[in-house]
Design a protein around this nucleic acid. Structure first.
Length: 493
RNA sequence: GGCGGCAUAGCCAAGAGGUAAGGCAACGGUCUGCAAAACCGUUAUUCACCGGUUCGAAUCCGGUUGCCGCCUCCA
């Protein structure tokens, strides 16, 4: 497998420290508000990586944290006249609802910062003992001494001078260097506080990830990642404090995904240009959202728009349509399974095309092995779908025909599992997608009644009345489809 | 200002030295009582622009332009 490593800015062959085992730490969310779609992108990206690694036979330990204490949480508690604990608890629940709705299973370990204070204090103690950290004033903040760590800046590719040149940081008289960052933040009266050798306070942002990741995954992690926007300062600081404390490499492969944008601008709370996961899911099927999120490579920027989600919906519909036809076929031949006979030939496809259809799993895996290239993997699936549709258009009587399609069906669903797509019952999904969750201008009962009336008219060859009903429904954005199994309807797309 | 990234058809998007995947949309055809769906076909001699390396360049190198991200909390 090849994985792009932010530290070296290259794709590298992936080799975990311990054969067959992989530890992944993905930076989670700060729980002070509902999550937006950018957070969903992050979670889906790591989920898919984990699924593919497991498919490749690795035993993966996936850790995703909650930052459940920080300034924004405290501020939110003040604003809403409640406790910081209540704020954290509320938005952890909200996050879990979103994950469940998107079908993302929980990580193996989901640690909370406030439950790991002793581990953070231990790292800070070591850093102070080694001279990498100092307290600015008695009872005050404890800082990391950036100038003492030679590798500072190696992750973001900048020198200390580079960073300082553009720094908009206020000069803090207690800091030795403007870029020294807080490890332990002294609490003001009334603020949440934990006891420490340096006085009551709370952890700085970066130290929690070092403490929690190393506790669960060891001093050197295989994989650690988050959004591109976390490279500096968050991951740079994590790297510095962790390596300063242990003297060992902190992370073997740093993974950073691209950001979700709106009109080419980063979706963010501060810009106010965000949609929460809940808002998006109210309008689009969760699987459509997932498809949208993985239809481009995880490191690319991804622009959100209704049109883009609409395209994702149409594309997913195409996948499920074929799957539905394959499912119908399976019901007609319940005993037949793949694999296809090696010597099977079909009029509709050349030998090369049949081979291509059957080697989908290899090509799919190859794409995923190449830095989790979900876009290419999906491209291969669509190619297989096109070939499959061609076969379905030209039914053959041979048993090999059914066996081949049974194998294709199995492959599509099996590969879909890696992307957490195509796991639903096709007919149910098609019905859900066709109705788009949109407000209907007419009740389904009324539609059914008109369909029945039209069926009667058609039996009597009363084409005028049949067309009239079609037109009537069409004006209410309902499209009728006459199939051998009867007439179905869908909301116009 | 410093650091980094991206520019591929109407839109979205793979490809990273060997002659442009895939999706959406559009148009033509097959099918259909009419449609829809599906299938077939068409839609980039060309990958922002200018140079260079090479037998050969979206792919490598240099420069230009435009957009984005980070340098403050951010997935």
């Amino acid at each position: 497998m090849q994985i792009y490593n932010t530290l070296t800015r290259r794709k590298e062959t992936f080799e975990p420290q311990h054969p067959g085992k992989v530890g992944l730490y993905a930076c989670g969310v700060t729980v002070y508000d509902h999550c937006h779609l950018g957070h969903a992108r992050s979670c889906v990206a790591f989920e898919v990586m984990v699924r593919h690694l497991r498919r490749r036979g690795y035993e993966v330990t996936w850790v995703r944290n909650y930052t459940d204490i920080d300034d924004k949480i405290i501020r939110r508690a003040h604003e809403t006249h409640t406790s910081w604990e209540a704020v954290a608890e509320r938005y952890i629940s909200s996050f879990q609802e979103d994950m469940a709705a998107l079908g993302i299973p929980p990580a193996q370990i989901e640690p909370k910062a406030t439950e790991h204070i002793p581990g953070m204090l231990e790292i800070i103690r070591i850093l102070v003992d080694k001279g990498f950290a100092y307290q600015g004033a008695p009872g005050g903040d404890v800082y990391f001494r950036v100038g003492k760590f030679p590798g500072y800046g190696k992750l973001s590719g900048q020198s200390l001078e580079d960073i300082q040149a553009g720094a908009r940081i206020e000069i803090d008289p207690h800091k030795e260097h403007p870029l020294d960052f807080v490890l332990w933040k002294a609490s003001k009266p009334g603020e949440p506080a934990w006891p420490s050798p340096w006085g009551p306070g709370r952890p700085g942002w970066h130290i929690e990830c070092s403490a929690m990741s190393m506790k669960y995954l060891g001093e050197t992690l295989d994989l650690h990642g988050g959004g591109l926007d976390l490279i500096f300062p968050h991951h740079e600081n994590e790297l510095a404090q962790s390596e300063a404390a242990t003297g060992k490499p902190f992370v073997r492969y740093w993974l950073h995904h691209g950001l979700l944008t709106i009109d080419q601008e980063k979706m963010s709370k501060s810009l106010g240009n965000f949609f929460t996961i809940k808002e998006v899911l109210a309008r689009f099927h969760p699987e459509v959202v997932r498809f949208f999120l993985i239809n481009s490579h995880y490191r690319s920027p991804l622009d959100f728009s209704d049109a883009a989600l609409g395209e994702a919906e149409a594309a997913l519909l195409r996948l499920y349509s074929t799957l539905g036809r394959l499912e119908d076929l399976r019901k007609h031949y319940p005993g037949v399974r793949g694999p296809a006979p090696a010597d099977f030939t079909a009029a509709a496809l050349t030998a090369e095309e049949i081979d291509r259809l059957l080697t989908l799993p290899e090509r799919f895996a190859g794409a995923m092995d190449d830095d989790f290239n979900t876009a290419q993997a999906l491209g291969y699936m669509f190619e297989a779908v096109r070939l499959t549709n061609r076969l379905l258009e030209h039914p053959a009587a041979e048993p090999g025909y059914v066996a081949l399609l049974a194998e294709v069906r199995h492959n599509l669903v099996d590969l879909g599992y890696v992307l957490n797509l195509l796991q639903a019952e096709p007919q149910e999904m098609l019905a859900a997608l066709r109705q788009k969750g949109a407000e209907l201008k007419i009740s389904p009962q009324e539609i059914e009644r008109l369909i029945t009336e039209r069926a009667e008219a058609r039996t009597n060859k009363d084409w005028a009345r049949a067309d009239e009903i079609r037109k009537e429904l069409s004006e209410m954005d309902i499209t009728l489809e006459d199939t051998p199994q009867g007439t179905t309807w869908r909301v116009k797309g």
